[in-house]
Amino acid sequence: MAFFLQSVLSGVLIGGIYALIGIGLTLIFGVMRIINFAQGELVMVGMYVTFFLFRLAGIDPFLSVLLTMPALFVLGAILQSTLINRVLDALPQNQILLTIGIGLVLSNTAMLVFTSDYRILSTSYSSSSVAISGVHLSTPLLYCFAITVVITGALYWFLIRTDTGCAIRATAQDREAAQLMGVDVRRMSVLAFGLGAALAGAAGALVSPTYYIYPQVGGAFTLKAFVVVVLGGMGSIVGATLGGVIIGTAESLAAAYVSSGNKEMVVYVLFLLVLLFKPAGLLGKSRM
């Protein structure tokens, strides 16, 4: 029983990170109907920023969230206003090519500048764990999860309580009607992409004590975020939150009870089953 509980809880903790990346992806998709295939690469940029802040300035990775988020927000906003705004009315395949291209440029630039060496950010607590009635939970993952909950909560608050947040939701629900309310939808797009990138940056900072840092690490995150978002229902933030936790838990249980080499397989089988029986995703109809 403790073993089962252990697996579920570890899965939920990892799932929080998947949710964070997925929420960024779904926010961008909701507002612009564009799938950002560079989402994982933005996580990678966040990881490198965190790594160097730690190495050069000694800033704790969890504290550096306060710096990576604004930095990635700015990067995202620049990408949106210079590149992505130009393809808002283009064919979907062109939009996909653009975001994949941005991802390639980011990962190859990282390779050029930082080489493809694997780097490890090790803190004093990197391998410590906390035991709660027989269940051992990794300390960095616990911190990571707590911060994820705070960030997600703040985002929900922003989207539901503030005028700007409501304008983002309105743009996602009916772009034209939002314009008729006086919403500058191009500005909302820049804001949404900035926020999505900031969430990716936060995720990058939070996982850097537990993951290897290398230029190609983004691909796996993009794929996982995509699965999380489709599972939860494209454009649904609650869905992405739920999807992240489900994928994290499934992965962890599969690693514990099947084999850690096959955990991805279990995740994708689960994903295919949801697509077969609920093609719009778990919360496919409700949007944000």
Binding site: R169, A170, Q173, D174, A177, A178, L180, R287
Partner: peptide
């Protein structure tokens, strides 16, 4: 606008 266009999820 025509067709009301209220924000359905609000």
């Amino acid at each position: 606008p025509e067709g009301r266009r209220v924000f359905p999820e609000m």
